[in-house]
């Protein structure tokens, strides 16, 4: 089965969706959307460095994403408004990364594959790396789940319960860097943040507890990946953007139905 590139693509996509969606819930709850963007955009710099130093791209991206996320964590709360800071970092990281790639004379790389993903080219070894990364993210989230939630509610409540919000922030940062590194192949640096945020946003109106929201988000993400792969195959469109488009369609459907349901209920009452 794994000899078929479509099956490998499907496996890779579903695996990444399983990790990205629950993590994406935290990104939404903690208003870290730009944080995800900055970390993801920095990945292109990681690609350039990995090619330059001739190390694995996964390793290069993971390192740079970690450094980027660490920088943002350190700089936050030091005088700049967070969204300004992240706006600067997100776009600078992308620009510097693109410039760095152009310096790699003699290396022929397909920039599009890194910007928009190349899920159909996932090999067996990629699948192992993605599986390992996803497992690590899920273990981190399971292990720290309640502490992460408490720290998300309020730093003070977390402190009063004997937790350390900075440490929980670090856990999220690490998980985010891992997701960026494994999602690069699936949707590319420009659309990783979409895979984090759109499923979580789609799930929100249907859920009453955080756990249910994480699971529904994972379902939405897996559905988007599966349907996106199929649609891209049938319509011969780029796969990564098609997956994100499908997620956007699901979000729109969810929003329109819940809003009109609410409107109708108010009219009836």
């Amino acid at each position: 089965m794994l000899d078929d590139f479509m099956w490998r693509a499907l496996f890779a996509g579903v695996l990444v969706a399983m990790a990205a969606a629950p993590l994406g819930c935290f990104v939404v709850w903690r208003r870290m959307a730009y944080f995800g963007d900055a970390t993801a955009h920095a990945a292109i710099l990681g690609v350039a460095l990995a090619l330059l130093l001739n190390v694995s791209i996964f390793l290069g991206v993971l390192t740079v994403a970690l450094v980027m996320a660490g920088c943002v964590s350190l700089l936050s709360g030091r005088g700049y408004a967070m969204d300004t800071l992240l706006g600067v970092m997100a776009h600078s990281a992308l620009a510097v990364g693109l410039v760095a790639v152009s310096f790699l004379a003699g290396v022929r790389i397909d920039l599009n594959a890194y910007l928009f993903g190349d899920i159909l080219a996932v090999g067996k070894s990629d699948l192992w790396i993605i599986g390992g990364g996803v497992a690590l993210v899920l273990i981190l989230l399971f292990w720290r789940w309640s502490s992460l939630l408490t720290a998300t509610l309020s730093d003070e409540l977390a402190h009063a319960s004997g937790l350390h919000p900075r440490r929980e922030q670090l856990v999220l940062t690490l998980a985010l860097a891992l997701v960026v590194a494994v999602a690069l192949k699936v949707v590319g640096v420009l659309l990783i943040a979409a895979l984090l945020i759109i499923p979580a946003a789609t799930a929100r109106p249907f859920c009453r507890t955080p756990e249910v929201m994480a699971m529904v988000a994972a379902g939405v993400a897996m559905l988007a990946v599966t349907a996106g792969l199929r649609a891209a195959y049938v319509m011969d469109t780029p796969t990564g953007p098609t997956i994100v488009t499908l997620a956007a369609v699901l979000f729109t459907l969810a929003t329109v139905t819940t809003q009109s349901w609410r409107f109708l209920r108010q009219r009836i009452q």
Binding site: V28, W29, R30, R31, S146, S147, L149, T150, T152, L153, S154, E156, L157, A158, A160, S161, L163, A200, A201, R204, C207, R208, T209, P210, E211, V212, M213
Partner: peptide
Amino acid sequence: YVPQRLHLDPTLPMTVKRFINLPR
């Protein structure tokens, strides 16, 4: 500890029962 006020982000679904059982 009872804090002054707690702002819950509207994107975070939370029931009283679940909230009270955090973090343990």
